[in-house]
Amino acid sequence: MIRDITVMGGHGRLGRPDLVRKIQFNMGDVISIVGPTGSGKTTLINDIELFANGNTPSGRQVLFNGVPAPIEYRDDPSRNPIALITQHTTFLSDMPVDAFLTTHAKVRGGNPEDITRLAQEAIDFANELTGEPLAAESRMTELSGGQTRALLIADAAIICSTPIVLLDEVENAGIHRTRAIELLRRYRKIFVFVTHDPRIALLSDARIVMKGGRIMDFIVTDEHERAFSIKVARLDDALASLRDQLRNGLRLCGTELEGVR
């Protein structure tokens, strides 16, 4: 059982050290990674995904319950505690969605009733996140970008059931991202989001700040920010509403923005 993971600092691109030398994530934590484009956010989640042990370009070390990853994490994907969803991750299989999820659930083991239930649960989860619901019988390659991303997240949360989920720029995926965090919070996992989105950052317990490939700071979301996040949410919802009107072919009049301060 994984209780916590620890990132031990390494260095940035020019060999200058990470300023934060040790960061611990506990089970149930939601952590964001923020920083300008090219600042090393993706490198950091790759370090976690690769179980870095001083052997990646950053020289960082990732510890699980305080020790380096056991070899079976890497050797056996069904024992790999991490699901990584990058901007490049996609499904390549051209199968109906339910057949695909069932195939995956079978590989993970379990009895037939559980397999069918898990597949349905994953589809329902995905449909909470998408604008247009996906059908169990639709083919994987016919899914839109948002539906694909929603299904990746649902599969990682429900069928992989890995204790650690890494999500790279979920806001670009065209899914309901706050709904995603809400739903994911129900599963006791460590979630790490690479994000540029203030709403996601403020919904997180803490955020890691990157610059020039280095870990510059670790900021715990405080009471003031939590209170402020309600305003951010209101503003974001107003923009989302405008986006929906745009999608539905309406003329925009901007009344949503009047209440936002």
Partner: peptide
Amino acid sequence: KVDRVSQAEREVFRA
């Protein structure tokens, strides 16, 4: 190229 496919496909591939 395990990073290019979903966790699901990676696991099924191995199985």
